[in-house]
Amino acid sequence: MPAIELTNPAALPADWRDLFALTKPRVMYLVVFTGLCGLLAAPAMPPFVLGFTAILCIALGAGACGALNQWYEADIDAKMRRTAKRPLPAGRIDRQSALHFGVGLGVFSVLLMGLATNWLAAALLAASILFYVLIYTVWLKPRTAQNIVIGGAAGAFPPLIGWVATTGHFAPLPLLLFAIIFLWTPPHFWALSLFVRSDYAAAGIPMLPVVAGIENTRRQIFLYSLPMAAAAVAPWPLGLTGMAYGVSASVLSGVFIVLAARVLANRSTDPAQMAPEKKLFAYSVFYLFALFAVLVADRWLGA
């Protein structure tokens, strides 16, 4: 056979590294961690292998969301600097392979969750995948500035799934964990979207800073951080956690509000001058990790 020079990478079988990148592994850490905390905070511990499988299924479900999101948004990703090097816009993988990979991963994760734990957890996992892909990615994200507010529910499912995988039923604490992530998502994403808003504007995505302006977004960040802090502290006065969690959640949330107030006070429209926004974005990731870690520690120490 004559030698053919490699000119079209998408015509080749996808490299496994590109398939892995489709799952957005960096986003997966937070999803897996919050799911694990939901599982560990539950009153009963499942056998190790079932707990491990539940977390694996949450990770695979999150991977399916990432792959289907990138499949649907390949043309939008190509317009943004932050995402232009992803496997689909860079042409290293074809769209059909990404679709098959995402759907296969999603179906597999739901079936395995149902077989290993219970079908309520599997139904929640299926609902979270469908919510993220259909409600957030396809419907809300390209249409409304409130995309993150409602779409945040998709990322709030993991602790609920982790809890239900262990116990088989709902309870007030995992519903509060759901509420915390739901209310945390808007200030987290809006802080990011403030300093990358030119990217979103170029891609035609109606993120809040693009549609409603920078000042309005800063005000919304601060306003959302208040109910988020209330939800974060709530498990303590409700008697669902001990004082260690209550004090830690109060301090962590207090710092969040102070950083959100600094964002509110910032008047700059230049991304280079948006240090308060960058600081809040970085802290918001730490905040969620720390809050959930303290919750598990409190539940285990108080047990």
Binding site: M1, A3, I4, E5, L6, L12, P13, A14, D15, W16
Partner: peptide
């Protein structure tokens, strides 16, 4: 790199991981 070499390399790598 020849196209067929790259195809075979990727297929082998994916088969091993699978």
């Amino acid at each position: 790199m020849k196209l067929e070499d790259e195809v075979v390399r990727r297929q082998r790598e994916r088969a091993r991981i699978m």
